[in-house]
């Protein structure tokens, strides 16, 4: 059981150690006189649990009466864990002899989905408003 608990605490301690600022900046790539560094926002998490159950096995009713202390302890241990990591590119740092600049990376797919949802929302409210105004007058 001690080993499992140690593993749990080690993993939790390791989490902070891994969370350093360098995780969001990728390796610089140099080509044709310019260096590009990808930048992403990163999120990760994990959870784990361990347990140990002590099963008390009685050797028999008669034996218990005869010898109360004659109990055998047995148990099982189990544990599990899992984690996830998400990295989303948000920009690219471009270094040229002229200077350094940051170019934003736009997630067009997410924006298109959100824009579609917003358009549907606006159409819904607009229709509702028109029905309220003109339906009331009629």
């Amino acid at each position: 059981m001690d080993k499992e608990m140690d593993a749990l605490l080690d993993a939790l301690a390791d989490l902070r150690a891994k969370a350093n600022a360098n995780a969001v900046f990728g390796n610089p790539v140099t080509a044709e006189g310019r260096t590009v560094i990808p930048v992403a926002k990163v999120a990760y998490g994990f959870g784990m649990g361990v347990g140990h159950g002590m099963m008390v096995e009685e050797t028999g009713a008669e034996a218990v009466e005869a010898e109360e202390s004659q109990e055998e302890e047995a148990g099982d241990s189990a544990g599990g864990g899992g984690g996830g990591l998400m990295a989303q590119p948000i920009a690219v740092v471009e270094v040229t002899p002229e200077g350094t600049r940051v170019q934003a990376v736009i997630d067009e797919q997410r924006l298109a989905l959100a824009g579609g949802a917003l358009a549907a929302w606006v159409v819904f409210w607009l229709t509702r408003t028109l029905v309220k105004i003109f339906g009331h007058e009629a």
Binding site: L15, V24, A43, M48, V50, G53, M54, A91
Partner: peptide
């Protein structure tokens, strides 16, 4: 951590978010 007469258990979770703000 839970310590009982019939069982001992431990669990934990952690989450980290890293957001670049400048260079």
């Amino acid at each position: 951590a839970l310590v009982g007469t019939e069982r001992v258990s431990g669990r934990g979770w952690g989450a980290v978010r890293l957001r670049p703000i400048a260079i």
